[in-house]
Write a protein that binds this DNA or RNA. Structure first.
Length: 559
RNA sequence: UGGGGCGUAGCCAAGUGGCCUAAGGCACCGGUUUUUGAUACCGGCAUUCGGAGGUUCGAAUCCUCCCGCCCCAGCCA
């Protein structure tokens, strides 16, 4: 890990770490155990990363451990594919669960026994009400519910029915097992919550062994207890479930008492972080899969070239609190740039090529120019870049009629080609439509390397690629997936999709770039950071723009 | 109208009665350096802590009332 990670971890302080510290100091716990509990029903996204950084971070800060636990209690939504992708993503983010990988489904037998225990105590009963009836009996937010007619079923009958539910005797939804708590509670989670439902479904891990499955409420806290979890950290929407979490722990013969604490989930501008919506984007083809570089999924961010450490740094910077918040995407971009600026080797790539011909440069000559791999880091060494008579420069680096503060190339003006020579634009060639298609220039042989012996200055340095020695590459430019800061705020979130979130360009890059492998990141100078896509090949390189460099000229231009 | 949670700058967020005429980061606005209009560096950016009262020598921090936002009526998690 980089210094920044260590720094963030060392300085991390939040209300949860305060609680943990107190629990350790008071002797309530000798060691702490947390867990990251994804449901394998989709891919992990940056919101999950916040949770992982918290759970694994707290464990590491206090020399405890963090478990990876799959909350696999709903077989109709869960798949092996997700179990696998989740493990890959957790590892990639840099976290290690060691031996401690668990599944709620590993506890099904124990959970069943505990359900039987509750029935025996008169604290749970089998209810025959349909889902619709149960909703009616539950009351509303402001009116109390009323007891189900089956609420006082004798223990023996409950036991018999529950056993038969398990054996597969009934149809899906025919009956449920409910805790007997308080139908008049202001907290709806306490109005006899469902503990088990009948689901004649194939489970990715337990296969067809079960016909009933525990609900989240009955599985989660109990799994925490079985694993010895001390601090069960979850998001705010579960705060209402805490009284139920505690009730179950109190009424079951469990050996350890976990406590639940809630923190606010992450929201980010210009994207959505809801598994349901992300699933919809994938299924309806608005993006090219879960790992589309525009997706906020970990697999998408990885493919776009975001370093795992940038995500960890980001998590450290946003903190952990209980207030609803929406973080500016610019903060995340900053974390990415901050890391990549230090590590990415510099290369030249022209995204939108404009040909220039250097009239006084010998035809057919190829001169190797020495260029630094990282100007701030001499240890990164140098490389050779071929310079020829015909080159490409960036279209936006030329203006026929430059405004006052534009100091790049224009007719009669001299600029520097990075590491090479000073050139002056002598003539502008246009096509029939008046589009500039070529520039005729001359160079000053005395300025080799980029400095003039007579000391004259130039106001701009341009990147360039040899038209004859450079190679073509596909470059994929990504922009925000949504054009609105808060997608869906004014209706359907799909209406806010950014039609320009992806643009594919035919760029020219220096020949050395043929050597990159998928996942390698470089900085195209003056443009941004680019990561070779898995689609890349030696003959046909493909680069994803991870993030653009800050561009104060673009800002100035808008004014 | 029941229950739960939250309100400190455009965004995130420190702060737990005096050292707060309120940290830090992002964004933004200047300026310096610069063979990346990048990076780096320097400076600016809340007399005020949702509002109103009150307690106190002293309040963002304590009390009261009010206002606003979020979550909950799945046999999802």
């Amino acid at each position: 890990m980089s210094d920044t990670d260590v720094e963030n971890t060392e300085n991390a302080s939040d209300f949860i770490r305060d609680v943990v510290r107190e629990d350790l100091e008071s002797g309530r716990h000798d060691a702490i155990v947390t867990r990251f509990p994804p449901e394998p029903n989709g891919y992990l996204h940056i919101g999950h990363a916040k949770s992982m950084c918290l759970n694994f971070g707290v464990a590491s800060d206090f020399k405890g451990r963090c478990h990876l636990r799959f909350d696999d209690t709903n077989p109709v939504k869960e798949e092996l594919e997700y179990i696998e992708s989740i493990q890959e993503d957790v590892r990639w983010l840099g976290f290690d669960w060691g031996e401690h990988i668990y599944y709620a489904s590993d506890n099904f037998e124990q959970l069943y026994a505990w359900a039987v225990h509750l029935i025996g105590e008169g604290k749970a009963y089998v209810d025959d009400l349909s889902a619709a009836e149960m909703r009616e009996y539950r009351g509303t937010l402001t009116e109390p519910g009323k007891p189900s007619p089956y609420r006082d079923r004798p223990v023996d009958e409950n036991l018999d029915l529950f056993r038969r539910m398990r054996s597969g005797e009934f149809e899906d939804g025919a009956r449920v097992l409910r805790a007997k708590i308080d139908m008049a509670s202001g907290n709806i989670n306490l109005r006899d919550p469902v503990l088990y439902r009948i689901l004649n479904a194939h489970h990715p891990r337990t296969g067809d062994a079960w016909h009933i499955y525990p609900t989240y409420d009955f599985a989660h806290g109990q799994s925490d207890s079985i694993e010895g979890v001390t601090h069960s950290l979850c998001t705010l929407e579960f705060a209402d479930h805490r009284p139920l979490y505690d009730w179950l722990i109190e009424n079951l013969p469990v050996e350890t008492i976990p406590r639940q604490y809630e923190f606010s989930r992450l929201n980010l501008t210009y994207t959505v972080l809801s598994k349901r919506l992300l699933m919809q984007l994938v299924q309806d083809g608005h993006v090219h899969g879960w790992d589309d570089p525009r997706m906020p999924t970990l697999s998408g961010l990885r493919r776009r070239g975001i370093p795992a450490a940038a995500i960890r740094d980001f998590a450290g910077l946003i903190g952990v609190t209980k207030s609803d918040s929406t973080v500016d995407m610019s903060l995340f971009d900053h974390c990415t740039r901050d890391l990549l600026n230090k590590s990415a080797l510099r290369r030249m790539g022209v995204l939108r090529p404009l040909k220039i011909v250097i009239e006084n440069y010998p035809e057919g000559e190829v001169e190797m120019i020495e260029a630094q791999n990282h100007p701030q880091d001499p240890d990164a060494g140098t490389r050779q870049v071929p310079f020829t008579r015909e080159l490409y420069v960036e279209q936006e680096d030329f203006m026929e009629e430059p405004p006052r503060k534009f100091f790049r190339l224009s007719p009669g003006r001299e600029v520097r080609l990075r590491y090479a020579y000073f050139v002056i634009c002598r003539e502008v060639i246009k096509d029939a439509n008046g589009e500039v298609i070529e520039l005729r220039c001359t160079y000053d042989p005395e300025t080799k390397g980029g400095n003039s012996p007579d000391g004259r200055k130039v106001k701009a340095t341009l990147h360039w690629v040899s038209a004859t020695e450079g190679m073509q590459a596909e470059v994929r430019l990504y922009d925000h997936l949504f054009k609105e800061e808060e997608p869906g705020a004014n209706g359907d979130f799909l209406d806010d999709l950014n039609p320009e979130s992806l643009s594919v360009l035919n760029a020219y890059v220096e020949p050395l770039l043929a050597e990159v492998g998928a996942g390698d990141t470089v900085q195209f100078e003056r443009q941004g950071y680019f990561c070779a896509d898995p689609d890349t090949s030696r003959d046909a390189p493909v680069f994803n723009r991870t993030v653009a460099l800050r561009d104060s000229w673009a800002k100035a231009k808008k004014k």
